[in-house]
Design a binder for these strands. Sequence first.
DNA 1: ACAGGCTCTGACCGATCGGTCAGCTAGCGT
DNA 2: ACGCTAGCTGACCGATCGGTCAGAGCCTGT
Lengths: 183, 183
Amino acid sequence: MSTQEELRIIALAEFASAGYSATSLQRIAELASVSKSSVLYHFASKEHLLEAAIGPAIDRMEAVLAPLEGTGLGNERRAFLEGFVDFLLEYRLEVNMFINQGSSLVDVPVIERANTVVAHLAEFFSRNSQSLEENMRFGIALGGAAYMLCTAHALGLDVTPATEIRAALITIMNELLAPVSTT
Amino acid sequence: MSTQEELRIIALAEFASAGYSATSLQRIAELASVSKSSVLYHFASKEHLLEAAIGPAIDRMEAVLAPLEGTGLGNERRAFLEGFVDFLLEYRLEVNMFINQGSSLVDVPVIERANTVVAHLAEFFSRNSQSLEENMRFGIALGGAAYMLCTAHALGLDVTPATEIRAALITIMNELLAPVSTT
DNA sequence: ACAGGCTCTGACCGATCGGTCAGCTAGCGT
DNA sequence: ACGCTAGCTGACCGATCGGTCAGAGCCTGT
């Protein structure tokens, strides 16, 4: 694995667990057994490193959420849900960052892009829900699923059997979103 | 309002929105229109300020979760749920901090206390659930409710009618926790 | 009038932050 | 043998961090 790719992975893990602003370039360099200068050789700045770390996840999220731009989910709801859950499972660390630091890292362009996508998602469900309670179901389902996955280990939850997790997540979220877009 | 109390409130808001490590004492001082030295006069250190800011919320959380230490919820489940939701609504900012920064602020004693309480909560539901899916329902319900409340404004959600929010939250969480401890 | 404590402040400290820069080294094409 | 480039480094920069300290201003009890 190239040094650049290794730095990307280490930075993502540290940004997600300790927080972006609490993670110094010095620490990333030490974890990768290189010098701080080397980090700044591969990535022009700390912000560029953040962008490289979470950019792919945002691209994927945009792709997953693209079908929502149309009139509605229609009969493809389950497929959308599966795609969304797969996204959560594959990009846990990045989602963890969006969830926990998305609001505090405003003014960082790449985070702004993630927030925009999430806002679109929220707007879609807000538009397709007919009451405050339905709207809250969306928030709990999506936020809760993302939150639980990211902090499960901190709660002593075992989430190793990925396929079982996936099936349970889809079932629960499907229930929560039941009233939405069944028109 | 005393300067000390004002600093506590300002610090809590900043810690919750921008993050603990991203918030400098200088900024808190400026928001309160006092000097940084004055902040450190009222609170011995940044960590003491954090403790003062979120300590009351942890006390309250411990009180709300105390009934779980026994054999189970029994027929007091709804009362517990209402107490928990009221806690979430009253201490939104503090809960936001536990959720978003609880894992990254380890080694700070007061945060450790909060994490311990949350771990107890998780352990209780883990013990009283009979499958992975039930366990995940707990995570989604509690985490999702807390998450949604704290970041609702960032998602464009309007959560001003507190009584309506409260009723909807209790309804949804009651559904999610339905299989748990109905024995 | 005066002494003492409470509140607050600016000057200052060492440490660490993100970032710059000149230069070292190894490999490779010619 | 030569020069060029990619990868990497230590020394260094100004800014900001959390925290210390001596002292100013003010209010109150005596």
